[in-house]
Design a protein around this nucleic acid. Structure first.
Lengths: 112, 112
DNA sequence: CATAACCGCAACCTTCTGGTTGCGGGATTT
DNA sequence: AAATCCCGCAACCAGAAGGTTGCGGTTATG
């Protein structure tokens, strides 16, 4: 159920979408969305890019609230955070809803 | 209902998310999602940025398939295209679904 | 203790991005 | 025909993005 006051501001949504707008970061999220926390080396294991590059991407994702960091001993474990994904979905729902309403108004106008 | 073969590739999704990852472009989409086509000057009427900047943003949106262009006389009319939005939503649904499954498995493990 | 593993910081580089200004050309209006 | 409107092209710029290498520090392991 959607509370109308839960509308998402455009600037916040843009930040989340911006974080999602990179294949490497989407890949990281895809891995982490299985719920298991992973260290940086584990996340950069495939070796496409350097560990440092992965570190930077993880910082971007953390900044957008899509992952959270927890230091465990000598390693930094990152875990998926679902809330921003839900917000992004809600934003897209709003856009789609406005589009659907526009279509509906047009249909009503034609049928009248 | 979800057809499994309708899965969205990460690279395509990243392109759409990248296009959505800018406040100005989100604003353009918000305007256009009412279904009415608008010219470039009309879309840059608020004057926050130059007409040229808006032109570039519209090109990015068109590249991502989020808007389409139609030349009418001396003006270029842009209109909203809903398909990529639906795809982006579907991608986020996949991520959320994997997350939910992970939670469910964890719950089952604990209750067992 | 010595070594290895994991990480953070910093410098550096190249390319992309968002934005501007200036100008010229086709379409409309007067 | 002349003035105006809408647009596209090009040059240019500062800063962000994505990536790499090198090094030092802390934590674990032999």
């Amino acid at each position: 159920m959607w509370r109308p006051e839960a509308r998402i501001a455009g600037r916040d949504a843009a930040a989340v979408f911006g974080a999602l707008g990179d294949p490497t970061r989407l890949g990281l999220l895809a891995k982490l969305s299985d719920g298991q926390a992973r260290s940086i080396v584990a996340l950069s294991a495939d070796g496409r890019v350097t560990r440092q590059a992965i570190t930077k991407h993880l910082e971007v994702l953390e900044q957008a609230g899509l992952v959270s960091r927890a230091r465990v001993g000598r390693e930094s474990r990152y875990s998926f955070r679902p809330e921003p994904v839900a917000q992004a979905r809600a934003y897209l729902d709003q856009v789609s809803a406005q589009w659907d309403e526009a279509l509906e108004r047009l249909r009503a106008l034609v049928e009248e």
